[in-house]
């Protein structure tokens, strides 16, 4: 089955599962109707919960989803459905209170029934979940701590909501209605069990050892790993993995990094990591022989799934890591198709892989177009951001048939997509990776 077909099937399943509780409301025997606003409030509550119930799936790193959809798209989708679901769910109590102020007594925690207490508690947890995710950096919550809180709050809030709807039991009389929510709860439990127990156990059984840590230009470090007691993993050029170092995989302190190495090398995995946060600053301290756990590979940012007469790579700074993996793989395979790599950096000295790219240009049909924000004196190359004129200057006439791979922060990706589409490139030929996913 083609990836496009799988994509359609998963999207179809998602639409069906999300709309199912609403459709079941229409099918099932309904209790006698009540006033419009109360019924709307209940329906929106179910709608919100149905969307929020989908949140556990995209971030569970399920291999069958991750092979079809880009992981950063799945994470963005997770964030968006969370906010949309939360907004709909919030409309449930708000409409209820406005339509019937008498129901405000349910907020009185001391004498409200448990079904109402559960709802209030879950709502508070959802507010904390959304606020701590949207404003994590403003609240100065460390990423690792936030992830622990996020996981615990999400499971507790979901359990409280299920308790609420089963105890209120107004529209859950029909076996289809009960069955749907039991199935949804079982899926949440299964996803949580997979993420929190099964996957870490798998990782524990397949450790890797550090064999080298070497500095790169641009305050980055390349970490080389070798499988310890197993055959290692096969990845596709441009993919990435989550790394855990100096702690157990059960601590969930892993961070995503792209492979920089060739897929044709099987006994060694390499990642290049820029010093940006808590974990990335400790990479240089890792010693040969230390254990590292590698959860992956993930991602769809690879050329194997996108055949073309030529490729265009566009990266800013450390966004070049997956591009290097693609280039090294093509060189090892003696792939002679042309590649143009537009590579933006602050200055000439901080161009990560500068020398490696020079070597690669001798081994394959590669043209590197460096763009510098602060060029050195006498610089003959391009400067500033990538413009349409720069793209047109370096691309061949048949560029609309080529495939495009862009890795960088979201504003850069959005700007590039716009320019390429204006130049006649189909959106289907543009593949992106947001390197600020976490």
């Amino acid at each position: 089955m083609s990836d496009a077909m799988k994509e359609r099937l998963w999207i179809g399943a998602f639409v069906l599962v999300t709309l199912a509780p609403m459709l079941i409301l229409f099918i099932g025997p309904r209790p006698e109707g009540r006033e419009f606003w109360r019924e709307l409030s209940v329906a929106l509550g179910f709608a919100g919960l149905s969307l929020m119930g989908m949140q556990f799936i995209p971030t569970a790193r399920l291999p069958f989803l991750a092979s079809v959809f880009p992981m950063d798209t799945l994470y963005t989708f997770h964030r968006r459905i969370s906010i949309a679901g939360f907004t709909l769910a919030l409309a449930h109590p708000l409409i209820l209170f406005i339509g019937n102020p008498y129901t405000l007594r349910l907020l009185n925690f001391t004498n409200a029934p448990w079904r109402a207490r559960a709802a209030v508690l879950s709502l508070l947890l959802f507010i904390l979940l959304v606020a701590s995710s949207v404003w994590r950096k403003d609240f100065k919550i460390r990423y690792e701590r936030w992830r622990t809180i996020h996981g615990v709050f999400a499971v507790v809030a979901a359990a409280l909501v299920l308790y609420h709807i089963f105890m209120v039991n107004h529209y859950l009389a029909h076996p289809l209605q009960r069955g749907y929510w039991v199935l949804v709860a079982a899926t949440w439990a299964a996803a949580t069990l997979y993420v929190r127990v099964l996957r870490p156990l798998q990782l524990l059984r397949r450790p890797y050892r550090v064999i080298e840590v070497r500095p790169e230009r641009g305050e980055a470090w390349t970490l080389a790993l070798a499988p310890d007691g197993h055959a290692g993993m096969r990845f596709m050029a441009g993919q990435f993995a989550w790394l855990t170092a100096r702690t157990s995989p059960f601590s969930f302190r892993d961070n995503p990094f792209s492979f920089n190495s060739s897929t044709e090398v099987h006994d060694r995995l390499e990642f290049t990591i820029k010093e940006l946060g808590d974990f990335t600053r400790t990479v240089k301290e890792l010693q040969p022989g230390e254990k590292v756990y590698v959860d992956g590979p993930f991602g769809t940012f690879d050329i194997d799934q996108h055949e073309a007469p030529g490729y265009v790579m566009i990266a800013g700074g450390i966004g070049s890591v997956p591009v290097l993996s693609i280039l090294r793989t093509m060189a090892d395979r003696k792939d002679t198709r042309p590649v143009v790599f537009f590579y933006g950096n602050p200055d000439w000295e901080s161009v990560t892989y500068r020398e490696d790219l020079e070597t690669l240009q001798k081994r394959m049909n590669l043209k590197v177009v460096h763009l510098l924000e602060n060029p050195p004196a006498g610089w003959q190359g391009e400067t500033g951001y990538i413009t349409r004129e720069i793209l047109e200057r370096h691309l061949p006439a048949d560029h609309a048939q080529w495939q495009y791979f862009i890795c960088g922060p979201i504003p850069m990706i959005a700007a590039m997509e716009k320019k390429l589409v204006a130049m006649g490139v189909s959106l289907h030929y543009i593949h992106t990776e947001n390197y600020e996913m976490a």
């Binding site: 639409v15 709309l19 109707g33 709307l40 969307l51 992106t432």
Partner: peptide, 30 residues
Amino acid sequence: MQDIYARNLLIGIVAGLVLLSLLFALIQSL
């Protein structure tokens, strides 16, 4: 590319959920 599709898909789903909720409330309140 997929991000634009994902956003449109979500807008469609939310619109569908809200419309179904309104329809349901209307039917029940009649």
